[in-house]
């Protein structure tokens, strides 16, 4: 077991809860909405983003002493895109079915503000080990919100979880219908709004 210092524990806790990238920092909202119709895609996206966020934070943190500040944004972008393209190519070579499902959304990890936000805001000024943990925690915090929303959307919208039907047939026979709004864009916005409300009510955070 790797021992974490107290400071590193704080980093982990912030990414996952009190400074959650989606509900607190308003980062990465775009893809959080687009891939949450199904739990499966939400999980895959969460894993992909966690990997990219952690490894790009690590890389940029290792390079931070050498990057000229004038071109730092573009260098960070390059590092992130190289990682994303590598992930995309690996998926296409070894997990073809998965890559077929994710399509353009893998590419959009590049501009996911969580990755760039953590790289610019944390990895540029912190040592590699902590930067890696920060990327990891933020990625996981994002994945948690994603999966939570996806569970509700898939259950209410299609009556399934991970593709398997969970609602009993009798329910449909008694006139229950799937909530079509949940699979559409507005449903995603409402749910995320409610999740933000809940998380902020529990963690006690208030805007201004």
């Amino acid at each position: 077991m790797i021992r974490l210092t107290r400071k590193e524990m704080t980093v982990l806790k912030e990414g996952l809860w009190s400074g959650n990238p989606v509900t607190f920092q308003v980062l990465g909202v775009c893809s959080a909405l687009a891939v949450t119709v199904k739990v499966e895609t939400a999980l895959l996206m969460g894993i992909g983003l966690t990997f990219v966020a952690a490894s790009s934070s690590l890389l940029v943190s290792l390079l931070r002493a050498f990057i000229p500040s004038r071109i730092r944004i573009i260098v960070q972008l390059l590092v992130v895109s190289v990682l994303v393209i590598t992930v995309d190519q690996l998926l296409r070579a070894f997990f073809y079915a998965v890559s077929k499902q994710m399509s353009v959304f893998v590419g959009l990890i590049i501009t996911n503000c969580i990755v760039m936000g953590r790289v610019e805001g944390y990895a540029m000024i912190n040592p590699p080990r902590r930067a890696f943990l920060d990327g990891l925690a933020n990625g996981l915090g994002y994945a948690a919100v994603l999966v939570l929303i996806a569970v509700v959307r898939e259950l209410a919208g299609s009556g399934t979880i991970l593709g398997g039907a969970v609602l009993p047939r009798e329910l449909y026979e008694h006139g229950y219908v799937n909530n079509g709004l949940m699979v559409l864009a507005p449903g995603a916005f409402f749910l995320l709004g409610l999740v933000v409300w809940l998380q902020r009510a529990l963690s006690g955070y208030r805007e201004k």
């Binding site: 509900t23 308003v26 559409l184 864009a185 507005p186 449903g187 995603a188 916005f189 409402f190 995320l192 709004g193 409610l194 933000v196 409300w197 809940l198 902020r200 009510a201 955070y205 208030r206 805007e207 201004k208």
Partner: peptide, 23 residues
């Protein structure tokens, strides 16, 4: 607006309503 809903939360709910209008 209730405290925890201020800012991001209420904005998302409004965006949802706007998205419905655009539909």
């Amino acid at each position: 607006v209730p405290g925890p809903l201020k800012g991001l939360g209420i904005s998302l709910l409004i965006t949802g309503l706007m998205a419905m209008a655009f539909m």
